[in-house]
Amino acid sequence: MLVSWGSFALIEVFEQQHLPFQHIPTLAILGGMGLMLPKSPTALKLLYTCIEIVLIFYGATLGYLHILLTVYLIVLIRTCFLFEKVGRWTIACLPLFLFLVDQVRYVQNTTLLLLGGQQEAFWMHLDADHW
């Protein structure tokens, strides 16, 4: 998943002729965090999960992570290694909720930029994609 995000950064390098310096630390930190999962205590595990979510939101504000549900899968997968069954389900609901909030925000921002006729086409496109 991180490789796919890195490929987005490379595409940006070729299309816009500049290196996306703000993307590289986000990807590097998320990748590095996967190499060291905390074993205990629970507070450290929660802090670890919160840092992941903050990094994902930061990446979303940069503009290239907002449409990728796979970003939140990293939190879900790592949560399975960190917490017991109840903790897994509790933490699993949070990224799903955050993804839905981010998608609503993305659609609202996109529709503000479109003209009347374009908005109708946009909504028809969204509806067609989900059915």
Results as ranks from 00 to 15, higher is better:
L126P: 00
T42Y: 10
V107N: 11
F81V: 01
Q108N: 12
L55E: 03
W131T: 09
I91P: 00
E84S: 12
T61K: 13
H23R: 14
W131G: 10
I29N: 04
Q119I: 15
I51G: 02
V13A: 08
S40C: 10
Q16W: 07
G34R: 04
K39I: 14
G116H: 04
T111H: 04
Q22R: 08
M124T: 13
Y106P: 00
D127N: 12
G117D: 10
G87I: 00
P25M: 03
V75N: 02
L82R: 00
G34P: 01
I53W: 02
M36E: 07
Y58L: 12
D127I: 11
Q103M: 14
S4I: 10
W5C: 14
L46A: 06
L82S: 00
L100H: 04
H125Y: 12
L2F: 15
E52F: 07
F14L: 13
F97E: 03
Q118C: 03
V104P: 00
Q118A: 15
W89A: 11
A28P: 00
L113A: 15
C50H: 05
Q17W: 07
V13N: 06
F81P: 00
C80R: 08
S40H: 11
E12C: 10
D102Q: 15
V13P: 00
K45T: 01
T49Q: 03
L35I: 00
V3R: 06
T79V: 10
L65A: 15
D129P: 03
P41R: 04
G31R: 03
L115M: 09
Y64E: 11
T79G: 14
I11K: 13
A121C: 04
W131E: 08
L100Y: 07
L27Y: 01
C80S: 06
V75R: 01
L55F: 06
K85N: 07
V54E: 06
L47A: 13
F99M: 07
T49V: 08
M36G: 02
L114T: 02
F81H: 12
W5E: 15
F57M: 10
L27P: 00
L47P: 02
W131L: 11
L68M: 09
L96N: 02
Y48C: 04
T111I: 14
L10A: 10
L62E: 09
L94Y: 07
L10W: 06
L73D: 07
L68F: 14
A9V: 04
L2V: 12
L73H: 05
T70K: 05
W5D: 11
A121E: 13
Y48M: 02
L126H: 06
L62H: 03
Y58T: 12
L47R: 11
F21C: 09
M1Y: 05
F122R: 04
F99D: 01
K45V: 04
K85V: 14
C80T: 08
G34K: 01
Y72N: 01
I77K: 05
I51M: 10
L10H: 06
F83L: 09
G32W: 00
L30K: 03
I53G: 02
D129E: 05
V71M: 14
A60Y: 05
L98K: 04
N109H: 12
I91D: 00
T26Q: 04
F99T: 07
L47V: 13
P25K: 02
